[in-house]
C-alpha cells in the first residue's frame, strides 16, 4: 500500500472511532449495550458511505463493502434455504427422527416418498464436481427446465395472454346519446364523455398497433408498417411515463438513506 492511501485509511479510521465514542456517549443514557449499539450504528454509517463513494469512482472502501456484502449475504441466503426449505419442508416429510431433532412437526403422508425425487436429483447435481460423471448433472437440469417450461406455459397463457385480451374488450362509445348530443356537449374535461371515449380509443388502437409491432413474420411496410410505427410510439409513451413515474420512488430511497446518516448517525435533524 502507498503511503498516501495509508494516510487516508488512518484518517477515516480515526474519524469513525471518534464518531463511535460520541455516539456511545450519547446512547449511554438510554441504551444498555450502548457501546455495541454505537458501534453498530457507526459501522452501518461507514458501510453506507463506502457504497456511496462508488459514485465518484471505485475505491478500497467500496471494495471492502462489496466483499463483505457478498460474503455475508451469500451465507445469509444459504442459511435461510437450509432452515426454511430443508428443515421446514423436506425433513418433516421424510424422517420422523430428524424432524424430532429439529423440533419440527412430522408430516406423514401417503405420497411423501415422492420427496426422495428432489433429494436424488440434488445429489445427481453434485456429480458435477466429478470430472468423469459430470454429465449426469444434466438430468436434474433437464428436470428443472422441464418444470419451468411446463409451469410457465399455462401460467403465462392465462395471466399475460387471455386475461389481457379480455381486459381490452372496451366500448368505443360511452354514454352514447347520438351524434348531435356528442357534439353539442363536446368538451375536454377529464371526466367528460369525449376524454373517456378517447381513452378507450387509445387503448384499443394502442394494443392493436403494439401487437403489430411485435409481428415477426411480416415485413413492416405499407399500412402494416404505419401501424407498427404507431405501435412503437405507444411503447415509447409507456416507457417514458413509467420512467417518469418511478423517479419519485427512487428519490425516496435516497431520502431514507440520508435520513439515516443525518438523523440516526449524526443527529443533525430531529
Amino acid at each position: 500500500m502507498k503511503r498516501s492511501s495509508l494516510l487516508v485509511l488512518a484518517v477515516v479510521v480515526i474519524l469513525f472511532a471518534i464518531s463511535w465514542i460520541l455516539k456511545a456517549n450519547q446512547l449511554s443514557a438510554t441504551e444498555e449495550n450502548y457501546i455495541l449499539e454505537a458501534f453498530l450504528i457507526t459501522f452501518a454509517a461507514f458501510l453506507t458511505l463506502s457504497v456511496l463513494s462508488f459514485l465518484y469512482k471505485d475505491n478500497p472502501f467500496y471494495k471492502f463493502a462489496e466483499h463483505l456484502f457478498v460474503g455475508v449475504s451469500a451465507a445469509f441466503w444459504m442459511c435461510l434455504g437450509f432452515w426454511s426449505t430443508l428443515v421446514k419442508n423436506l425433513i418433516p416429510r421424510l424422517s420422523e427422527g430428524l424432524s424430532e431433532f429439529f423440533n419440527e412437526p412430522y408430516m406423514p403422508g401417503d405420497y411423501n416418498f415422492f420427496f426422495w425425487i428432489p433429494v436424488i436429483l440434488g445429489i445427481l447435481l453434485l456429480m458435477r464436481l466429478s470430472k468423469e460423471h459430470g454429465w449426469i448433472a444434466r438430468w436434474p437440469l433437464a428436470f428443472i427446465v422441464g418444470t419451468t417450461a411446463g409451469l410457465n406455459f399455462v401460467r403465462y397463457l392465462r395471466s399475460d395472454f387471455i386475461e389481457q385480451i379480455s381486459a381490452t374488450f372496451v366500448p368505443l362509445l360511452i354514454e352514447w346519446q347520438g351524434v348531435g348530443h356528442f357534439f353539442s356537449n363536446f368538451n375536454l374535461a377529464i371526466d367528460g364523455q369525449f376524454v373517456m371515449m378517447l381513452s378507450n380509443w387509445v387503448i384499443f388502437v394502442g394494443v392493436m398497433c403494439g401487437l403489430i409491432y411485435f409481428f415477426f413474420s411480416k415485413e413492416h411496410t405499407g399500412v402494416f408498417g404505419t401501424a407498427s410505427r404507431v405501435g412503437i410510439w405507444i411503447l415509447m409513451i409507456t416507457f417514458g411515463a413509467s420512467f417518469g413515474y418511478t423517479v419519485m420512488g427512487r428519490i425516496s430511497l435516497l431520502v431514507g438513506r440520508l435520513t439515516f446518516l443525518f438523523k440516526d448517525w449524526l443527529g443533525l435533524i430531529s
Binding site: 366500448p171 362509445l173 392493436m208 401487437l211
Partner: peptide, 20 residues
C-alpha cells in the same frame, strides 16, 4: 397475435354495440 387481435376487435364491437 392474430387471434388476440381478432378477439379484441370482436369484443370491442360487441361491447360497443351492446352498451351504446
Amino acid at each position: 397475435k392474430g387471434i388476440a387481435m381478432l378477439a379484441i376487435i370482436l369484443g370491442m364491437v360487441a361491447v360497443t354495440m351492446a352498451t351504446a
